[in-house]
């Protein structure tokens, strides 16, 4: 059963200098107990997508131009305010990028965790406190520290508090927006391990946003690569890692330094991510694509998402011929 199903979502921001097209028609789905890794560079539109799911975007200047976001079959974009608030924190939770500023400095961490429990579960204060202490234990923070303030914790511990807040009400879907980017590598491992353990215990689905392919490999079953507000390639981890199809994804993998091979220079992708206020026509990647030989099509037409293998979608004109070949092979009509 699909927990989350995003269909053709388009989010824009209407600013004084023009319209910023942040998310341009993405579709993805997350099943029960599944983890989907949303990978992309800075500025690709990942955080906007995540915020969009919970409708935490300021509208104006933001605008949900079109698309649907189905959570357990219900369209979030059509929900009333009260339903939305009931959903946030209890059904869908979010972990934010920067733990240093995500906690309220004048409330104790215990209060901040109990707050969400009290609000959603309508239980007594003692019950909420009991649950809060249980959560603290799960994230391995000593119970005595429940009465302390955020400034008294280190970055890693703060992130663990945020995880505790997010999972306090046992949500069905956890959106983690680059949860380890602000932490150093050793803590990164700890936090990820904790998230995974909790996920397994509570059978939570996860949308993990990151720009680290290694993290994706460790924690996720499905992957979606995002570029310029679009999902350019999506599929299972095996599809993406072993059968990389899209030129951008290939470029990403090529630019990762290898431990085994000896290299003099890194191989980055040439060029830069386009300005969302000024996107290129046709395929958004074509100005940087080494394979954009057939310039006319690549520059003129926007590629649709071709299913090269079942579940493996690629948004590239080069795949059109492959798909047709495949279809011919399988004997299916175009």
């Amino acid at each position: 059963m699909e927990i989350l199903n995003i269909k053709d979502l388009k989010i824009s921001f209407n600013t004084d200098t023009g319209v910023v097209e942040a998310v341009n028609g993405i579709s993805l789905s997350v099943g029960e107990g599944e983890s989907l890794g949303l990978v992309g560079e800075t500025g690709a539109g990942k955080t906007t997508t995540a915020l969009g799911i919970l409708r935490l975007i300021q509208c104006p200047p933001g605008e949900f131009v079109k698309g649907e976001i189905f959570y357990k079959g219900q369209d979030i974009l059509k929900m009333k305010d009260q339903e939305l608030r009931d959903m946030r924190g209890a059904e869908i939770s979010m972990i934010f990028q920067d733990p240093m500023s995500a906690l309220n400095p004048v409330m104790t961490i215990g209060e901040q965790i109990s707050e969400v429990i009290l609000h959603h579960q309508k239980c007594t204060k003692e019950e909420a406190e009991r649950q809060m202490l249980a959560m603290l234990e799960q994230v391995r923070i000593p119970a005595e520290r429940a009465g302390e303030y955020p400034y008294q914790f280190s970055g890693g511990m703060k992130q663990r508090v945020i995880i505790a807040i997010a999972l306090a009400c046992h949500p069905k879907l956890l959106i983690a927006d680059e949860p380890t980017t602000a932490l150093d590598v050793t803590i990164q491992a700890q936090v990820l391990e904790m998230i995974n353990a909790l996920k397994r215990t509570n059978h939570t689905s996860m949308l993990l946003i990151t720009h680290d392919l290694g993290v994706v490999a460790e924690s996720c079953e499905k992957v979606a690569i995002m570029y310029a507000g679009e999902i350019v390639e999506s599929g299972s981890v095996a599809d993406i890692f072993d059968a990389t199809a899209h030129p951008y994804t290939k470029g990403l993998f090529n630019s990762i330094p290898s431990i085994s091979k000896k290299m003099d220079r890194l191989k980055p992708i040439e060029g830069m991510m386009p300005d969302p206020g000024n996107l290129p026509t046709g395929c958004k990647f074509h100005p940087r694509c080494p394979f954009a030989s057939d310039l006319e099509t690549c520059a003129a037409e926007e590629p649709i998402a071709y299913e090269v293998t079942p579940g493996h979608f690629v948004r590239c004109h080069r795949c059109r011929s492959w798909v047709e070949e495949l279809k011919v092979e399988r004997g299916v009509g175009v």
């Binding site: 919970l54 935490l56 939305l84 608030r85 009931d86 959903m87 946030r88 924190g89 209890a90 939770s93 979010m94 934010f96 500023s101 995500a102 906690l103 309220n104 400095p105 707050e115 969400v116 609000h119 959603h120 945020i162 807040i165």
Partner: peptide, 10 residues
């Protein structure tokens, strides 16, 4: 942290 509070559904 205000965004976090909203995300909690308060």
């Amino acid at each position: 942290y205000v965004r976090t509070a909203r995300a909690k559904g308060l």
